Amino acid sequence: RNRTTFSTFQLEELEKVFQKTHYPDVYAREQLALRTDLTEARVQVWFQNRRAKWRK
């Protein structure tokens, strides 16, 4: 699988949710996936990576 390149819009949407919660539930991830045209799995992995970055 190739690396996912996120658009500016997608990143803004993802970051917006991350500001509210670092652990969105499955429903929130599904909604975000639909809004950003990503799969729920991509959204989940983005949050994992974003939390790792945030901890540093």
Rank of each mutant, 00 (worst) to 15 (best):
R1P: 04
R1Y: 08
R1T: 13
R1N: 15
R1W: 11
N2D: 15
N2Y: 10
N2M: 13
N2P: 07
N2T: 12
R3P: 15
R3S: 15
R3F: 13
T4L: 14
T4H: 15
T4I: 11
T5P: 13
T5F: 06
T5A: 12
T5L: 11
T5M: 15
T5I: 10
F6N: 03
S7G: 06
T8S: 11
T8W: 03
T8K: 14
F9A: 12
F9T: 12
Q10T: 02
L11Y: 03
E12F: 02
E13Q: 06
L14K: 00
L14D: 02
L14A: 01
L14P: 03
L14C: 06
E15N: 08
E15Q: 01
E15K: 04
E15L: 01
E15D: 06
K16I: 03
K16M: 08
V17Q: 12
V17E: 07
V17G: 10
F18I: 00
F18M: 05
Q19Y: 11
Q19L: 09
Q19I: 15
T21W: 05
H22L: 04
Y23H: 05
Y23V: 03
P24W: 01
D25Y: 02
V26P: 11
V26H: 08
V26Q: 13
Y27D: 14
A28Q: 10
A28R: 04
A28N: 13
R29H: 02
R29N: 06
E30G: 09
E30I: 04
E30Y: 09
Q31I: 07
Q31T: 09
A33H: 03
A33I: 09
A33Q: 01
A33C: 14
R35E: 08
R35L: 09
R35T: 08
T36H: 02
D37N: 06
L38K: 08
T39N: 07
T39H: 06
T39I: 02
T39F: 00
T39V: 05
T39Q: 05
T39W: 00
E40W: 03
E40T: 11
E40M: 08
E40C: 07
A41Y: 10
A41W: 09
A41I: 12
A41D: 10
R42W: 05
V43H: 00
V43S: 00
V43A: 00
Q44W: 09
Q44C: 13
V45G: 12
W46L: 01
W46Q: 03
W46A: 00
W46K: 01
F47Y: 03
F47C: 00
F47S: 00
Q48S: 07
N49R: 09
N49P: 01
R51S: 02
R51M: 05
A52G: 08
A52Y: 09
A52E: 15
A52V: 13
K53Q: 10
R55V: 09
R55I: 12
R55Q: 10
K56P: 06
K56Y: 07
